[in-house]
Write a protein that binds this DNA or RNA. Structure first.
Lengths: 345, 345
DNA sequence: TCTTAGCACTTGATTAGTTTGAGTGCTAAA
DNA sequence: TTTAGCACTCAAACTAATCAAGTGCTAAGA
């Protein structure tokens, strides 16, 4: 249990350290605190805080920095999100104000905006329905030997892939296959489709195509891509700013983590309605030891739930970041509602 | 003009320095050279080489390192491409051996292979005809409010874009527009199409669509994307290995350079039949001061000419790199010929 | 009992001085 | 033309000294 004064001190330590990056000592605190106490008193209180594992020293006679637990306490009990700066509001308004022709443009743009506002790395996921279902599949012949496969889900995702085919294409055969797919698989969730694709579909297709394997490869490819959560990243390069003493290896593993599509869910974690903050080693991934991740969901009514996140150094100004994330999720939800409303009539 | 012996020494300096990264001194050279001379003699020769600006000292009493001019001389007159290591051959064979369904997969895979072989960053461009022409345009309605625009060029490039439309789509109107585009624009080069798009097309389209601007935006977007040279990058992260003393800023500008699609042509330069090496500040771009770029074209007969490139530190083992690039361009051309042959029948 | 002044002590950073080793240019003799 | 020898230079590694910021602890005061 912390006393009022200890909370005040912890808050000041976190705020000071996140702003300056320098361990904070008792004297500086004494000058700065609203109450009037001597540095010796502060030292005593700090010793108590250290006892509880909330702050720590970098060496035996240094000032204190927050521990992971200290940040945690701060974020859970002490922080108050900053209101947006007027300038930030302008940035959001103007960047999100334009006309968009597809959801993905808005979501991708959002990642850029967030990274600009925070100068960290930002992630955005578009709103997803829990289990999106296959709503259509086509094969469009393009040129002499090219075909495009297009897959559409009921949440409006479109995935496509162009590929070359050998020999003459029999239009009727293609139509038959497409009809088969649409008859048998439309309405199923994507994992179900994938399962069927490995089970009874091949046999059925064999009726129409002499070499069905090529087709199955393509279809499977488009399908898995559609089933994967797509996310956008903004401000990738900002990670470079925090690579302490140029630790190339950890930087590399960080980037591979970010670029590997399939891991993103495990990194961002379960969606929750609140804004969530995970600090340093609270995340299992070792490459994130010195980073904190702020994630938040946003709701677009019946169109599902999306997610935004920012990744920055553990020592980030949480109050400001929470303010930005909190405000931006609202703005984004509003923008998307407008968007859907326009196109849904 | 260099004497036989001076060439020998220059070659040894470059080879030694690119291998070890340590300035090379007269004593070490004396031991290593095939002829038997004293270190004093070497010193004299080195002074002569320095006189000509081919090597330089890092400080007044250090060993020598090659200057840009020295590398240039080495590359132009002294280097002999290394033959591939057996292991490298295996890597190429197995990575390029599989079945591919589209050119782009091969080209993108090539970038990865090249970066693996060299442990540098690699670029690949697919074979392009000089002026590819528009060969077809479609609009495919996908769902209730979604349309996909597809553009095909005569060199087989496909560019597509999905977008949302408001209100009900009139299928006949769409067809009319598509027919108009195909009638008027097919067969023109992409820049010509782009010009027409800004000139007389809007008026004509206005007959069929009440709000043509949206359509023009989309079409223009797909068109410019198709006109842009697409390139693939492998081993991006390898650049991190050479950021001396973690100079974050230059690293950032390097990455933005690489990611900015439109600049790549200016970076890679004019295609030439020979393998070209550009060293350090021979490239105008400042971010590349400490890098060298090896580029090579490859020919796929009537399907045009493509390009491969690797970007690494100025201090790279040129003989090995030239060997790899030289061998790989051949392998790639062969693979692509096979590919085209298969699909062209 | 809580607070505070005072003091001895610890530590990282900075600076200056030393030593070492690799390498150079130059001179003079072979 | 080559080479042995020598004085000289410089970066790098190490040592010692100083400084400044900060701590814990003690003892006195509120």
């Amino acid at each position: 249990m912390l006393s009022e004064r200890q909370m005040m001190i912890l808050r000041a330590v976190v705020r000071d350290f996140t702003n300056t990056g320098v361990p904070v000592g008792s004297k500086a605190l004494a000058k700065q605190l609203p109450i009037h106490v001597s540095s010796a008193t502060i030292r005593n209180e700090m010793a108590a805080l250290e006892e509880q594992g909330l702050i720590k020293k970098t060496h035996s006679s240094s000032g204190r920095i927050p521990s992971v637990e200290g940040y945690r306490y701060y974020v859970d009990h002490l922080v108050k999100p900053d209101p947006l700066r007027p300038n930030d509001i302008d940035v959001i308004q103007s960047s999100l104000g334009g006309d968009f022709h597809k959801i993905d443009e808005i979501i991708s743009q959002s990642a850029t905006i967030l990274s600009n506002l925070t100068s960290y790395t930002a992630f955005t996921l578009k709103p997803e329905l829990k289990d999106s279902r296959l709503s259509g599949f086509r094969l469009v012949p393009l040129g002499k030997r090219q075909i495009m496969a297009i897959l559409v889900t009921d949440s409006g995702d479109v995935e496509n892939q162009t590929f070359d085919v050998a020999g003459d294409v029999d239009g009727e055969q293609l139509e038959a296959v497409v009809r088969l797919i649409n008859d048998q698989l439309v309405g199923l969730t994507l994992p179900e489709v994938l399962r069927k694709l490995q089970a009874d579909i091949p046999a059925k297709i064999a009726h129409y195509l002499q070499s069905p394997q090529g087709f199955l490869d393509i279809f499977g490819d488009v399908l898995t891509r559609a089933a994967q959560e797509r996310f956008y990243v903004g401000g990738r390069l900002n990670l470079l700013n925090f690579s302490q003493d140029s630790d190339v290896d950890s930087l590399k593993s960080l980037y591979s983590l970010i670029d590997k599509t399939d891991d993103i869910a495990s990194v961002l974690g379960q969606p929750s309605d609140k804004i969530s903050v995970r600090i340093g080693n609270e995340m299992t991934n070792d490459a994130l030891r010195n980073f904190s991740l702020i994630t938040a969901t946003y709701d677009v009514d019946q169109h599902g739930q999306g997610m935004i996140a920012i990744l920055g150094p553990t020592r980030m100004p949480y109050s400001r970041m929470l303010g930005i994330v909190g405000a931006f999720r609202e703005e984004l939800a509003k923008k998307l509602l407008d968007y859907y409303r326009f196109y849904d009539e």
